[in-house]
Each structure stands twice: as structure tokens, then as C-alpha cells.
């Protein structure tokens, strides 16, 4: 059944490459720091898929063990990244990575977006409210079947 295993390996490797590539594209293009982080995690997932596939092909548990370590390191990374992103957010008030380029050459002007996207108008909806205990909440119809925001 060598054919079967080879085909399995091929398919999984291509899926891993796809995950890796998509994560790469996301890391390169998205300016939200959290999305960048998610993209980086996605690249790790792509690598994990490949490792597991190779481990199965060679009947070697080390592939899976390496993935376990990847998960552990990713957890550490997540903890630190979250703390850092939180700090950065507290300082500048948003998550734009492009605001953080203080280490540029001193003679370069700060980065400025020359064109900003249209942001669709804000559709204000009612915020959720809590009804005091003991009373049956009277929810408006709009609230029960549609929410414009999470």
C-alpha cells in the first residue's frame, strides 16, 4: 500500500503548504496586529500538518511530538504577544501595526496612508440591556432576530 501512503502524504503536504501560504499572505497584508498574529499561528498549523504527515509516512512519533512542542511554544508566544499587543493598544489606542515604526532611519518621514478606505456608515442599534431580576424581559422584535454587531 505504498501508493496509498504516498498519495496521503502528497495531499497533506499540499494542504500544509496552502495553510502556510495563506497565513503568510495574511501576515504580510493585514495591518491589524491580532490578525497578523492569527496568520502566524496559521503558518504554524501548516507546518504541523506537514510534520504529522511525514511522521505517519516514516512511522515516527517524533513528528507528532514536535507538533506538541509547537503548540507549547505557540501558547507561550500567544501569552507574550497578547500582553505586548495590549500594551501597544493602550499606548496608541488602536491595533494598527503601521503606527509602530519608530525604529526607522532618522531622516525618513513617518509613514502616512495616502488614501483611506470608505468606512460604511455606522448603523447604531440598541445595545443589550439587562432587565432587573424577577421581571420578564420585553425584547423588541428587532433585537431578537437581528444584530448589527456582536
Amino acid at each position: 500500500m505504498i501508493e496509498h501512503e504516498l498519495n496521503l502524504l502528497t495531499n497533506f503536504l499540499v494542504v500544509g503548504a496552502l495553510l502556510f501560504g495563506i497565513g503568510l499572505i495574511g501576515f504580510l497584508t493585514r495591518r491589524n496586529m491580532i490578525i497578523m498574529f492569527l496568520s502566524a499561528e496559521m503558518m504554524l498549523q501548516g507546518v504541523s500538518v506537514s510534520l504529522v504527515a511525514w511522521g505517519r509516512y516514516f512511522n515516527d512519533l517524533d513528528g507528532q511530538i514536535l507538533v506538541i512542542f509547537i503548540i507549547a511554544v505557540a501558547a507561550c508566544e500567544a501569552a507574550l504577544a497578547l500582553a505586548l499587543i495590549l500594551m501597544l493598544f493602550q499606548r496608541r489606542g488602536n491595533l494598527d501595526i503601521a503606527l509602530w515604526h519608530d525604529l526607522r532611519e532618522s531622516n525618513l518621514p513617518p509613514y502616512v496612508d495616502h488614501e483611506l478606505p470608505e468606512i460604511p456608515p455606522y448603523q447604531s442599534g440598541p445595545w443589550p440591556t439587562l432587565t432587573p431580576a424577577g421581571r420578564r424581559p420585553d425584547l423588541p422584535q428587532q433585537e431578537t432576530d437581528y444584530r448589527s454587531h456582536v
Partner: peptide
């Protein structure tokens, strides 16, 4: 940080 997802930086790519 941003529960509504209306930030300009989510609508612009690099």
C-alpha cells in the same frame, strides 16, 4: 479593543 470591526486599518492592506 475593537468590538465593532470598523477600524480603518482592517479595511486597508499592505
Amino acid at each position: 479593543a475593537d468590538p465593532q470591526g470598523r477600524a480603518y486599518y482592517d479595511r486597508i492592506g499592505w
